[in-house]
Amino acid sequence: MEKMTSQYRWGMVVDLDRCTGCGACVVACQAENNVAICGKKEISEGRNMHWLRIERFWVGKYPDVRARFLPVLCQHCQDAPCEPVCPVYASYHNPDGLNGQVYNRCVGTRYCGNNCPYAVRVFNFYNHEWPKPLDNQLSPDMTVRTRGVMEKCTFCVQRIRRAKEDAKSENRAIRDGEIQPACAQTCPTDALVFGNMADPRSRVAILSRSPRRFRLLEHLGTHPSIYYLKGGGREHV
C-alpha cells in the first residue's frame, strides 16, 4: 500500500466575505484551460462547460433580501466520490491531493459526473470547435478535449507543473504563493487563495484555520481541499 509521499497538498480558501461574484475568475478559468465556448442552446440544455461557476442564492424577501455568492469549482476532495467509480482510472487521485482527470483515457461513462455531489464535472456533449482564427487563443499547455470526455477544474495543473519544474531546476521547494491558478490570480478582491495545505505556515493553511471556515457539503465526508470562509451579510460578521 503506497502512501502519499508528496510534500504538497494543494488547497484553496474561498473567502465569501470578499467575493463579490464579479465573474472574473470564470473567464480567467475559461481562458486558461481552453474551456469550450457554449452557445445559448447548449447552456439552455444544461451543458455549460464552465469549470468554475459562481452560484447565486437569493435569501429572504424584499426588502430584506440578500444575494449570496458561492464560487464552486472542483473541490479536490481527499475522499472523492468521482474517483472510485471511474472504470478506467481517468479520474484518479494525485499524490499532491488533486483529483486528476486524464482526458484521453476517459471513455465517457459519466459516472463521475453523476457521483460528484458538487456537480463540477462537465461533459463534452458537443464536439466543440473554435472558428478560425479564434483557435489561436488555445493554450498549448492544455489539450483540447474532444467530444464524449468529462472535464473539470485541475487547479491549473499546468501551472503547478511549471512551478515544479522551476523549483526542481533550482533545487528548492515551491514557495508559498508561487503558484496561482488562473482564478485566484485574477480575483480582484483576493477572495481565492491557493497554496500548500501541508505546510502549516502557508497562507491557505493559516486561512483554513479561521473560525469562519466551513467546507461544502461537509456531511458527505468527501473532505474537500477547498475551505470556504463564511461571509456575505451581517449575520456572519
Binding site: 500500500m1 474517483e83 482510472y89 487521485h93
Partner: peptide, 12 residues
Amino acid sequence: YPVKTGDKPIIA
C-alpha cells in the same frame, strides 16, 4: 500496474 492514487490503497 499501479496508478498513483494519493494515499488511497492500491488494492481495494
